[in-house]
Structure formats: C-alpha cells, structure tokens
Design a protein around this nucleic acid. Structure first.
Lengths: 220, 220
DNA sequence: CAGTAAATCTACTGGCGAGTAGGTACGCCC
DNA sequence: GGGCGTACCTACTCGCCAGTAGATTTACTG
C-alpha cells in the first residue's frame, strides 16, 4: 500500500519541491482510490499529504489536473511493469502468460493504483476517460496484435482487425474483472489467479470442462 | 433510449402518483447514466422529468434512495431478460450461448440502464456497490454453477468451487467489458458480438488461432 | 358546485468544498 | 547574522446543490 503520512502537527518541515510533489501524489492516489474523484476533497488530500491546501494548488494545479496527473503516473508504472515482464521472442501462449503474470503481479503490489486506474478513472466522464482510454487502448492493441500474429502464423488469415480488437477488449475486461474479484479474495497468490485466466482465454471452457488444462512450459 | 420529456412550461399536468414515479425514474436513469451519481443534480433530474424538485423528495426520497431504487429496477429488468432468454434443458454450451445473447440483447436495447448499472453503481462506494454486487454475484454464481455442472457431467470433478467462481467472475467481466466496447462500436449487431465472446470463452484463443470456431447448433 | 385532499409549485436555508489573498517562518549564502 | 527567496500557513470568498417550508392549484366526490 501507499503512504500514510502521520497526522499534521503545526507547520510541516521544509522540503524540496520534488519530494513534496511525490508525497502529494501518493496521498492523492490513496484518497482518490478510497473515495472516488468527486467524493475526494482537496482538504482531505492535503491533510493526508501532511501539508496545507494552497500547496496542492501551488504544486499540482486544480483538482482535475491533479487527478489526471495521478492517472498518468500510475498508468505509466503499470504499462512499464507489463512491458518489462513480457518476453517477445516466445510463442504466443507464453507471451500471453508472461503478460498476465506481470499484470496480476502489478495489481497485487499496487492495489490503490489499480483502484484509481480502473474504477475511478473509467467512471468519470471528462478528460480522464480519455486519458484512461488511451492507456487501455494500448493494452488492447497489444493483445490484438498478438492475436492477429498468432493466427497468421497458423496460416488462418480469417481473423479481421475488428474481431481481434473486440476479442482483445473482452480479454482485457476479463483481466480487470478478475483483478477486482481478487481484491475481495486476497489470500490467493498472483500466479494462481493469472493461470486461471490463462486457462480460460487460451483453452476455453470447452476444453476445461473436459479436464484439458494449459501448463506453463517448464523452464530452467 | 429512455424518456426525454419536453421542456417544462409552467405547471405540470396532474397525474396519478404511479405514473409520475415512473417518469421520474426514467429521467433519473437517464441523468445518472450521463453524469454519474455525484455530478447529477436533483435539479436536473426534476427538470428532465418535467416536474419540480419537491416532487422528487415527496415520491422517491433522498438522492441516495433514488439512485438505489434505479439500480434495483434496472438490475431486475436485466436479470429477468437473461433468465427469460436462457434455455435450461440444453447442453452447457447452448445454455451459455443463449445467456450471452440475452445479455447483449438487453444491453443493446437499454444502454442507459447499462451505464447506470455497470459504470456508475460500481464506482460509488457505500450502499450502491452492495446493491450492485449482489446482482452481479447472482450472475457469477449462475455461471459458476453451470461450469461446475459441466465438468461434473464430464467426469472431471477437479474444478473447485472457488476456481469456478473466479472463472465466472472473469467471464462476467469479459462480458461487461465487451459490452462497453460495443457502446463505442454500435454498428455491429448484438449476435455478432455475443458470438465473439462465446468463441473466446468456449473455444479459447488456442483453438481460435488454429481456425477452430464454435457454431450455434442449427435449429428448426 | 362546493369541499377536500392530493399534486404541484416558488423560494428559500445551510453546508460543503474548490479555489485564493495575503501574510509568516525557515533555511541558505555571503 | 542579516537579507532574501521559497516553502508554508490561516482564513477567507463564492457558487453549487441537497433538502425543506409553506402557499397554490386542480381533479375528483358527493
């Protein structure tokens, strides 16, 4: 979980701007994730951050700007985590597997980030949805590309761009939803959750109900 | 789409309570779906409904109560639509298929309802999430039961309750996400979208990239 | 054609929260 | 240690919106 600066007591210690900004962002992500955009107040964010309201405005601008900045930061962290985790030279199923593992790993380590990204941002109409949609779009395109590539290499060029995109949207949604479910059942390890989704989208119910499951190729 | 009562002009015509309540609910769903819970104002709802604010409070209580009532009404309609569409005596894949078709059919016909249910309700904390979670839970349990039953009949009793539930959560999420994607690509017929998801979750990518697809059994 | 009760209105209050004006203290550098 | 800039604060304004008090109209009912 993120920061929980101790309660304010009088004046805050002087700190360089960069550090304060970081603290403020952490506090903002925390509060936004708990309360949502509208219900979160700048007063509360400033309190959690351990400074006073005008500092917020001096450093991060308006409430909307602050929120957008949060989304960008968290989204970037997440995309980076996944991009780092994926292994581009592997066959399609292994690529998918490593991507899923990286995704669930990130969510497990950064629950507040995930709340802000998924729940809050997508439910606000304004510029946030756009911000979020763009990063979501990147994920969808990535999966879609993987899918198209896979079917090409299998000499079955029937998969249209559009179909691939919608399937990718469904997959990303399944991941999001499963991540939410996971928040309510946090006792399971990330790998188990990831492998369930892997089995669902790679093998399908049709195979699963017959007892056919997918296994990660044993490495090393 | 739902109601768009013409603009207020002076006093509204006298109507029996039941009718007015219906109008108000329609207006509320419309406004909530467009703006979200917090951004929606009781003033705007009353304006869209073609009556004045005290009527809202007289008939539907506070803003929160109104919102909860909306969720209950729309969720009930949706569950009923799906329950009506599913065919319980069929094999698992056909049951899943008819459920998916009913779901996407409903979303297509009631976009505002869907917005309220999925986006708005899930993003507000408090009593709404509970309301929504319960109806979502019903859907998940249903799918989970179907899955467990399928694997039983296939003599493969390995599927645990918990695993089934998480898979069901993923499937429901995939449906939700694909429905959202569909809102941005409304030119596709519901059946096509439904069949894509059916293929994804029943066959899996593994089969799809090989060109194996699922077809509805030809009927009549 | 009253009489009445339900349906409807106008016009307010009270509070919360975004954003700001203007001042204070703290570290730093010569 | 005295200036000086910047980090920081207290204490407001102002608008919006949930919720209400109390007057007013209008359809039935006898």
């Amino acid at each position: 979980m993120h920061a929980d600066q101790p309660v304010r007591t009088g004046r805050a210690k002087r700190l360089p701007r960069a550090v304060r900004e970081r603290q403020i962002m952490d506090a903002a992500v925390d509060v936004f994730s708990r309360l949502g955009f509208h219900a979160a107040s700048m007063d509360e964010i400033s309190e959690v951050a351990g400074i006073s309201k005008p500092m917020l405005y001096a450093y991060l601008g308006s409430k909307e700007e602050l929120f957008a900045t949060c989304i960008r930061r968290e989204a970037t962290m997440m995309i980076e985590a996944i991009a780092t985790g994926v292994e581009p030279d592997q066959p399609p199923d292994v690529q998918l597997w490593s991507g899923l593992r990286a995704f669930f790993g990130f969510v497990g380590e950064n629950r507040a980030s995930w709340q802000v990204l998924h729940r809050q941002a997508s439910s606000q109409g304004g510029p946030f949805a756009a911000e979020l949609a763009e990063m979501r779009g990147r994920a969808v395109s990535l999966v879609a590309a993987l899918l198209v590539h896979s079917s090409r290499s299998g000499e079955v060029p029937s998969t249209s761009e559009r179909e691939a995109e919608s399937l990718a949207a469904a997959l990303v949604g399944a991941g999001e939803s499963l991540a939410d479910w996971w928040l309510d059942h946090p006792d399971e390890p990330a790998g188990v959750v990831a492998s369930r989704l892997m089995n669902l989208v790679w093998m399908g119910f049709g195979d699963l109900v017959q007892g056919n499951v997918w296994h990660a190729p044993s490495r090393r």
